[in-house]
């Protein structure tokens, strides 16, 4: 049942203030912007990546994405260090799933893995990419865990940590590579640009999927602890 509305003054003032600030900031902008569409589309055409958003994410503004993956890694490390159960990532969650969820999971998870791969591959020419693929992969991992399937022991040990880190490590290596060739950070050589982006994307997908699953599992272990109480 909804609570009876009870307006408090300080939050209301703060919220009106930020509303006014956002409107003022937006109002200060010109009505039509040229944007960077033309430059980006031309640049994307040169690099062979037809989806401009993917080109922006991994090529032109790769620095943002690099730091973003670092943020995701830091959050995963923080959540993993907040867990109370060291085996959280491989512990079997029971008591959630029935036969229907089990059967559906058996059917869906392989399809979800294929969809994730498809999204990464298609990401260079149409909507899709490492984030969407990684999200589908992460959802598949969460679904598997919730359906009570036993997970392999390696899923909480050193191999899992490598899967978590491989995306960021490869991205850093690829970002540093141009420095050795006399360029600047993240300035990929033109001829190998598309393959480098694709390599980074595939490994990022694995890492994003693994960290989304770990973020869920690391805290879901507390559920079993709650049941034991």
């Amino acid at each position: 049942m909804p609570e009876r509305p009870r307006i408090r003054l300080v939050p209301l003032a703060a919220s009106l203030a930020v509303f006014a600030l956002v409107l003022r900031a937006v109002h200060a902008l010109p009505d039509t912007a040229t944007g960077l569409s033309a430059e980006m589309t031309a640049g994307a055409k040169a690099s062979g990546i037809k989806n401009v958003v993917t080109a922006v994410l991994l090529d032109f503004r790769g620095y943002d994405t690099l730091l973003e993956i670092a943020v995701l890694m830091l959050a995963t490390i923080a959540v993993l260090s907040l867990r109370t159960d060291p085996d959280a990532l491989s512990r079997r969650i029971s008591g959630v799933a029935g036969p229907v969820l089990g059967a559906l999971t058996r059917a869906y998870v392989p399809i979800m893995i294929v969809v994730a791969g498809h999204l990464v591959w298609i990401g260079s020419s149409g909507p899709g990419g490492a984030f969407q693929g990684g999200a589908v992969l992460g959802a598949a991992g969460i679904l598997l865990a919730l359906s009570g399937f036993a997970r392999p022991r390696w899923s909480s040990g050193a191999p899992m940590r490598w899967v978590l880190a491989v995306g960021l490590l490869t991205f850093i290596a690829v970002a540093l590579l141009p420095l050795a060739l006399g360029g600047t950070l993240l300035q990929y050589p033109d001829e190998s640009r598309k393959s480098l982006v694709l390599l980074v994307e595939i490994l990022l997908t694995l890492s994003i999927g693994a960290s989304l699953t770990s973020l869920f599992l690391a805290s879901a272990s507390d559920t079993s602890e709650g049941e034991r109480r």
Binding site: G128, Q132, S219
Partner: peptide, 29 residues
């Protein structure tokens, strides 16, 4: 469409699962 896909999968899917798990934990205990 790129943002839409990410929102549907991450914003609604993964975040929803995280929140349901969290409130389940709070309620159970």
């Amino acid at each position: 469409p790129d943002v839409a896909m990410a929102e549907a999968a991450i914003g609604a899917g993964v975040t929803g699962a995280l929140m349901l798990d969290a409130i389940g934990h709070l309620r159970r205990s």
